[in-house]
Computed example of a mutant assay.
Amino acid sequence: MWPFTRTPVIDPTHGDPRARALMNALAVQDRNTVRACLADVHDPDARAFLISLAADVPGVQDWIPRWVEEEPDSTLPLLLRGCHAVWWAWEARGAAYAKHTSQEQFDEFFRRLRLAENCLDEVTRRTPEDTTAWAFLTASARGRQIGPEEAAARFDAVVKYAPEHVMAHEQRLQYLCAKWSGSHEEMFAFARESASKATPGSQVHNIVAAAHIEYWLRLPSGEDQEHMRHPQVRQELIAAANQSVLHPSFRFVPGWPSRANTFAMALHMSGEFGWAARVFDVVGDHVTDWPWSYRGNAAKRFVSARKDAYAFGR
């Protein structure tokens, strides 16, 4: 696929027309189109991807309570309101560490998370098999600092119906990070156990790369690069990539680029430029904000890493 002829633009929909239509419909309060966009989406990962985009549309909180009130028997507006409130809560908190976050921000953060959980709890009460609702409850568990047993129960409720639900695994990994409610040991144990159970071609294998990136973030300068370039880490990343994005059975369900970008960045940081180049072949121009934003401007970091991979890996 090299050379690429344009500077990639971060598109959260990855060019998916249904995803774009859904976001546009929510922006103009078009309930019928929202329903139509989601009506026949039954794959758990695809549905979670679409709902995640819908949840991130600004201003939904201003009008969706009316939809909930006017259609009390429908779980869709409740689900959208609850999922939106999870991301809306993080908007209030900001991305800074706790010591740099004000009490006012925390108060609003928890208020919005309570709203989210009230909605999502009702969805799961009516439809216990709603994996998207459970996945977002897995995400909110981290913010609300829910105890380990309840947090694990939420994740288990997802994988009961969708054993390889990617978003749920990613959110569970975040909960188990040392910066939240776990430890490096718990994080890596979960990532490796989940990958060992995942089928070839599954996107779940990406959490191995995500775990190494999270660990890299916590290390002092110098030690971070040393970790990523350790022979065992490099071997583990290559093996995980070959079971996922580089496997012939890789599942290209909506949302796949963020998982492929995770491998591209991890392999680039590990100095495995040849393997990174193979992943960039798959990614094309589908750059994603996460995880590249951990290193600064996401699009620029993506382009720089891609140039390295093709220059030194071929």
Rank of each mutant, 00 (worst) to 15 (best):
W2I: 04
P3I: 03
F4M: 05
D11P: 02
T13E: 03
H14Q: 08
G15T: 06
P17F: 02
R18N: 15
M23G: 10
A25W: 02
D30S: 11
R31N: 09
R35F: 02
A36S: 10
A39R: 12
D43L: 13
P44G: 10
D45L: 08
A46R: 09
A46V: 10
L53E: 01
L53G: 01
V57T: 13
W67G: 02
E69H: 15
P72I: 09
L76G: 10
P77A: 09
L78W: 10
L79Y: 12
R81N: 08
H84V: 11
W88M: 06
W90R: 13
Y97Q: 07
K99R: 12
E108W: 10
R111C: 07
L113D: 00
L120P: 00
E122D: 14
R125Q: 14
T127Q: 14
A133C: 12
L137F: 06
A141F: 06
A141G: 14
A141P: 02
R142K: 14
I146M: 15
G147T: 05
E150C: 08
A151G: 06
R154H: 14
R154A: 02
V159N: 01
V166S: 09
E170A: 13
K179C: 06
W180N: 11
W180R: 05
S183A: 11
E185T: 09
M187H: 06
A189K: 08
A189G: 15
S194L: 00
K197M: 07
T199W: 14
G201A: 07
G201R: 01
N206P: 00
A209V: 02
H212P: 04
D224K: 13
E226S: 15
R229P: 01
R229M: 14
H230N: 12
I238A: 13
A239C: 10
A241C: 05
N242C: 08
S249R: 08
R251M: 09
P254M: 13
P257A: 07
P257V: 04
S258H: 12
N261Q: 10
M269Q: 09
E272R: 04
G274R: 08
W275R: 05
W275E: 14
R295P: 00
K300T: 12
K300V: 11
F302N: 01
R306M: 11
R306A: 00
K307M: 05
K307Y: 13
D308K: 14
F312R: 01
